Simulated scan of single mutants.
Amino acid sequence: MELKDLADELEIISRVYERRFGVERTDDWLVLKLHEEVGELTQAYLAASGRSRDRGEEPGEADTAFRAELADVLAQLLLVARRFDVDLEAEVERKWFRWRHLVEPQDEDGVRTHVREAAAPGA
C-alpha cells in the first residue's frame, strides 16, 4: 500500500474517532496527539527494555505495547502530513536519500538480506 493510500484510510478511521469521542481534530490537536503518541512510545520502550517500574504485565505484553505504540506514532504522523499536504515520500527523498551517493557496501550489510533471500530461486 502506498503511503498516500494508507494516510487516506487512517483519515477515515480518525474521523470515526472524532465522531465517537467528540474530539475536534484541529491542526493543533493532530500535532499534539502525535506528541502524546511519541510519549506513549517512549513509555512502552522503557517498559519493554526493563527500565520502568513493574506494572505486573504478562510476558510479552510490554513488547506488544511497544509495537502498538509504533503503529500509533506512524498513523498519527501520516495524519499530520496529510492535513498539511506534505508528501512524505518526496520529503524523505529530498532530506534523506540525497546521501545515497555516500553509501558503501558495509552500510548495506544485513539490511536487505531478507529481500535477497525472498527473491532467490527455491526460496
Score class of each variant (00 low, 15 high):
Phe66Lys: 13
Leu46Arg: 15
Glu108Leu: 14
Ala71Thr: 12
Asp5Glu: 14
Ala119Ser: 09
His35Asn: 08
Ile13Asp: 05
Val16Tyr: 07
Ala68Asn: 12
Asp109Gly: 02
Ala71Asn: 11
Asp8Cys: 03
Asp87Val: 05
Val86Phe: 02
Pro105Asn: 06
Arg112Ala: 05
Val92Thr: 09
Arg112Leu: 09
Thr42Lys: 13
Ala118Asp: 01
Leu6Ala: 12
Leu30Met: 13
Ala71Leu: 14
Ser52Gln: 13
Arg67Leu: 09
Gly60Asp: 02
Ala81Met: 11
Val115Ser: 02
Asp63Ile: 14
Glu18Tyr: 01
Arg55Met: 11
Asp54His: 13
Val23Ile: 12
Lys4Glu: 04
Val111Met: 08
Leu79His: 08
Pro121Asn: 04
Ala7His: 04
Asp85Cys: 08
Leu79Asn: 08
Ser52Ile: 05
Ser14Pro: 00
Phe66Gln: 06
Phe97Asn: 15
Thr26Lys: 08
Ala7Phe: 01
Arg55Ala: 08
Leu79Glu: 06
Thr113Lys: 14
Val115Lys: 11
Gly56Thr: 10
His114Ser: 05
Glu58Leu: 12
Arg19Asp: 04
Gly60His: 02
Leu88Trp: 04
Leu3Gly: 01
Glu36His: 10
Gln43Val: 06
Trp29Gln: 06
Arg67Thr: 09
Leu79Gly: 02
Phe84Pro: 01
Arg83Met: 01
Thr113Asp: 07
Ser49Ile: 11
Pro59Leu: 11
Glu24Ile: 10
Asp8Arg: 15
Gly50Glu: 01
Glu9Asn: 12
Val31Ile: 13
Ser14Gly: 11
Ser52Leu: 10
Leu46Lys: 14
Lys95Tyr: 03
Val73Pro: 00
Gly39Asp: 02
Glu69Lys: 15
Val31Cys: 03
Glu104Tyr: 01
Trp96Glu: 09
Val31Trp: 03
Lys95Met: 03
Gln106Cys: 05
Leu46Gly: 04
Leu10Pro: 01
Arg20Gln: 12
Ser14Val: 07
Asp109Phe: 05
Ala81Asn: 08
Thr64Ala: 12
Glu24Ala: 13
Glu11Ile: 02
His101Ser: 12
Leu32Gln: 14
Leu3Asn: 02
Tyr17Lys: 15
